[in-house]
Design a protein around this nucleic acid. Structure first.
Length: 477
RNA sequence: GACCCCUUCGUCUAGUGGUUAGGACUCAAGAUUUUCAUUCUUGCAACAGGAGUUCGAUUCUCCUAGGGGUCGCCA
């Protein structure tokens, strides 16, 4: 396309990196890479009341572990900085003053109560709640006097009365909204901070952003932004309104109904590649049946015209499946590296590497995220808890025969060759004349604590000679 | 309520003016396996509805319905 592509991720540090934000980040990043452009991180901290202390830090570190690197941003620098909005207040003020001077914005002294009553009255009359512009009627002298008097004020953007705003959205095509349905938005708050609308527009222009990727919830305020650009004499960027990610009940993805912070998935040990992959394919697909994509694949293949218009449901079941697929592709060594911290946290002894690798081999087919490897493996580290029912099975004469046979013959077995272990186990069945469940269940109950679980050779590999002997001894009545 | 956006299996989606409407997850059945898990095979399951354009619409147009979003000195 062109090499002037500049996109930005503009999260507000009111919480940890959100799944929705991650997807916007992924698309931004892939789009920038695909088009040889730049990806910028900008922190939108204009709401001083909702700031979360370590949110900025979390956003940056999470992006880093995801592998989405920004070219310009906080801590990284760039020629369009600063990249934190609270450090750009004087810039915004300059443009706000210009808007006021040109008659495109005005001071408003209405307090919260006034506004609330106004809204309530309008609602009662079945009118659309809208600022009634009473402060627009104030004389210049009166405005100056009130400001001099220290009265708190905000600045509102004066929307045109009769204008149709049109823009061509990269995902949705032409969109038209009439100015009469748009309120005179506050652009400067009484605490001296600009609102999103003003700050984002000014920054996007100053930072030469070419494409604004954001959620669909912004479509209805796009006229405000278009008007701001027009008043300031600037060209608007291309808007890319992405479909939303939804809860299973089709409401907007929320904390109440889902884990929405990427941090939580990382903490549980979902493979990073799986998180990226799954989030990316909610709302974007290639034209074939493919659904496995690495971040690199995304950078090579992402395109706007393959982004869907409709909202997509976040399906944890499919994420779990996909995460499991990624885990099954891993080597035992790699898996161990990822799972070990969870074992240590659970107080399990991970010093025996051979055992740990065998434990991984077993856990691999059964988990979706690393944390689950612990619950799949605890029984190899602790005393077995056997159900009453299974204890009855163990007590039977044939079970005892099986166990005794193994105890007697364990010494003859070469543990270095696992194939040999397999044949040894099969041979036992013939020698003592017990087969099927009657043979395998007592073995599994003795070694694993349940009649359902890994195959016997796997258990032998995990437990080792001493472990096997020890558990068989305990199973003897 | 007003405005805006959206609509293919339960979910994520592919697709075309003429297809047995394809794939994936889930679910079911079967195979492999001593069991569970994995894996493999098969199956269930969708074009929101109504007009119109057309020889022919899931595909194009309009209407209706449904869903979602916005209507904050939050982003």
């Amino acid at each position: 396309m062109n090499n002037n592509v500049r996109v930005r991720l503009a999260p507000s540090p009111t919480g940890y990196l959100h799944l929705g934000t991650l997807r916007v980040a992924l698309y931004n990043y892939a789009f920038a890479k695909r088009n040889g452009g730049k990806f910028i991180l900008r922190i939108e901290d204009t709401d001083q009341n909702r700031l979360v202390d370590d949110a900025v830090e979390n956003i940056i570190t999470t992006l880093k572990t995801i592998g989405v690197e920004f070219d310009e941003g906080p801590g990284k620098g760039g020629e369009f900085g600063p990249y934190v909005q609270s450090e750009r207040l004087d810039i915004y003020r300059k443009y706000i003053d210009k808007l006021i001077a040109d008659g495109n914005a005005y001071y408003c002294f209405c307090d919260k109560e006034t506004l609330d009553t106004m809204r309530a009255e309008q609602m009662a009359k079945k009118e659309d709640p809208r600022y009634d512009r009473r402060c627009l009627k104030l004389s210049t002298e009166e405005v100056e006097a009130r400001i001099a008097n220290g009265d708190p004020y905000v600045v509102r953007l004066r929307m045109p009365d009769d204008k149709v705003f049109k823009f061509n959205d990269a995902i949705r095509g032409d969109v038209e909204i009439h100015s009469s349905t748009v309120d005179d938005q506050v652009i400067l708050k009484s605490d001296g901070f600009p609102t999103y609308h003003l700050a984002a527009c000014v920054d996007d222009h100053l930072m030469e952003i070419s494409h604004v990727f954001r959620g669909e919830e912004w479509i209805s305020s796009t006229p405000k932004h278009l008007w701001l650009y027009e008043c300031l004499g600037w060209d608007a960027p291309k808007f890319v309104h992405l479909p939303l990610i939804m809860n299973t009940d089709h409401s907007k993805l929320s904390k109440r109904k889902n884990d929405v912070s990427v941090e939580n998935y990382l903490k549980k040990g979902y493979p990073v590649a799986a998180i990226i992959n799954y989030i990316a394919i909610i709302g974007w697909h290639t034209s074939d049946d493919r659904e496995f994509f690495s971040l690199d694949d995304l950078c090579k293949e992402f395109s706007l015209d393959r982004v869907n218009k409709a909202n997509g449901v976040f399906d944890i079941v499919k994420l779990n499946w996909m995460a499991g697929m990624y885990i099954r592709e891993m080597s035992n060594e790699d898996l161990l590296e990822k799972c070990q911290p969870f074992f240590i946290k659970a107080g399990l002894d991970t010093s025996d590497r051979t055992k740990m690798l065998a434990v991984m081999e077993n856990a691999k087919d059964r988990i979706s995220y690393y944390e689950q490897s612990v619950e799949q493996s605890e029984m190899f580290f602790k005393d077995l808890e056997i159900s009453e029912e299974d204890i009855e099975v163990l007590k039977s004469e044939s079970s005892q025969t099986v166990i005794k046979y193994f105890l007697d013959n364990l010494d003859n077995l070469n543990w270095d060759d696992m194939d040999e272990v397999g044949t040894f186990i099969k041979k036992g069945s013939k020698e003592i004349g017990v087969k099927g469940k009657n043979y395998y269940f007592p073995l599994r109950i003795s070694l694993f604590g349940s009649s359902h679980g890994p195959d016997i050779p796997k258990l032998f590999a995990i437990l080792g000679k001493d472990g096997v002997r020890n558990r068989f001894s305990k199973a003897l009545v």
